[in-house]
């Protein structure tokens, strides 16, 4: 599977915010509810948390799911199997919302 963002979705990667969240995580804070990517879909705003943003940014229609898992796995403290399962579930969610398709 090569997930591809729906071109109708407007989005922005909030890099400064992401840096602040990473620093908060280092201090032991729970940042799972912190948004790093903002999406606007049909006039409604949504946010993706840190890992959601990591996945979303790689949904370019050219990157295989396995490569996405590998890239993210190299940066985060998580077992490959758990990460792959989470990425798959997240992408199913995004597909059901119509934000991502399989290129």
């Amino acid at each position: 599977m090569k997930p591809k963002r729906n071109p109708d979705v407007i989005w922005r990667h909030e890099q400064r915010r992401e840096q602040q969240l990473l620093e908060a995580a280092e201090r032991g804070e729970d940042i799972s509810e912190g948004g790093t990517v903002i999406l606007v879909v049909n006039g409604t705003m949504h946010q993706l948390n840190l890992l959601g943003g990591e996945i979303w940014r790689r949904c370019d229609g050219e990157t295989e799911l396995a490569a996405i898992v590998q890239e993210i796995g190299a940066e985060y403290e998580v077992a490959a199997e758990e990460l792959e399962q989470d990425v798959r579930e997240f992408l199913v969610d995004l597909q059901q919302r119509g934000w991502v398709t399989d290129a």
Partner: peptide, 15 residues
């Protein structure tokens, strides 16, 4: 290595 938290859509609201 960065700490891991599951990916999710965290909020929605009208612009």
């Amino acid at each position: 290595m960065k700490k891991y938290a599951k990916p999710r859509v965290i909020s929605s609201g009208n612009v």
